[in-house]
């Protein structure tokens, strides 16, 4: 459904002397995402995973390569054509507080994508929005609130409601659960898993936390310095990773039980 071919993105960074140096944030990324599947992309900060997310979402133009969404090359598309397609691919950003317009009520924030893509009567619109907010397990009364009146977890749920409002074919989650308390994180992740079996979208979960990646997806790619260094389909256990870098990320994970730590301290 979504295919990237040799996707690359360069940046030019000026150093102290004013001379420009080329930084390849994303290099030769070839990914194929199939319908109704779940994928994770793991990498540390600076690995280029956020840039890749922006490229896939066509928020930035790639330097090289192509992105096909259902055989249409969206990398070459004009803004107007792209806008019409946006109902098919959605994204949940990392910081949900800043991703919501502080001057807009939750109702209007969720209504925004619906109004852009569908022509509904006011009553239909209200019904749709109320069903969306119940889907993300928030009370209907929160629609009248402003973003600052909600907790971090609730704001995240609002962003999720916005993302699923247009029944997209696939959704990118860019570090969507980092910065949340672990209990909240677990609830959000479980909600997303539940929603996926419901709406049958493809998820691309971008995260630095291999635990989250493994929890959310069957297919995991590990990214380092702009390249995908390992890709495992239908992963069953973290032992499946063989690449040295992936192993290092796994070994850095904190233990689940205190008795495992003696083993880790020995390393």
């Amino acid at each position: 459904m979504l295919r990237t071919i040799n996707l690359g993105r360069d940046y030019y960074v000026k150093d102290k002397n004013g001379s420009k140096t080329k930084v390849e944030a994303v290099k030769n990324v070839c990914l194929t995402l199939n319908e109704n599947n779940s994928y994770s992309l793991v990498g540390e900060s600076g690995s280029g995973k956020s840039t890749l997310a922006k490229l896939i979402m066509s928020l930035e133009k790639p330097t090289t390569g192509e992105i096909y969404l259902d055989n249409k090359n969206i990398a070459l598309m004009r803004k107007k054509q792209l806008r019409i397609l946006r109902s098919d691919f959605q994204m949940v950003l990392q910081d949900s507080y800043s991703a919501l317009n502080p001057k807009m009520k939750i109702y209007d924030s969720i209504a925004e994508p619906i109004r852009n893509f569908e022509k509904l009567t006011l009553i239909q619109e209200k019904e749709t929005i109320e069903s969306l907010i119940t889907k993300v397990e928030l009370p209907v009364s929160s629609l009248k609130k402003y973003p600052y009146q909600l907790s971090g977890g609730q704001q995240k749920r609002v962003c999720i409601a916005r993302a699923i409002a247009t029944n997209p074919k696939f959704i990118v989650f860019d570090e969507a659960v980092s910065g949340l308390d672990v209990t909240v994180r677990k609830k959000i992740l479980d909600l997303l898993l539940k929603l996926r079996s419901d709406i049958k979208s493809t998820y691309l979960f971008i995260t630095h936390d291999i635990d989250v990646a493994f929890y959310m997806a069957d297919n995991i790619a590990v990214m380092k310095d702009g390249e995908i260094v390992e890709y495992i389909k239908n992963i069953k256990s973290l032992n499946g990773f063989k690449h040295e870098y992936s192993r290092m990320l796994i070994d850095s994970l904190p233990p689940l039980y205190p008795k495992q730590r003696d083993y880790q301290e020995a390393i």
């Binding site: 979402m57 019409i84 959605q90 925004e112 994508p113 247009t166």
Partner: peptide
Amino acid sequence: KDYVTAAIIAGSTDKDIIIKHIVPN
């Protein structure tokens, strides 16, 4: 800011983004 990015993703036009998002803020 992120909410403008979010509005682009939600398929808003430039006009809507300016009038509904940027100007009120």
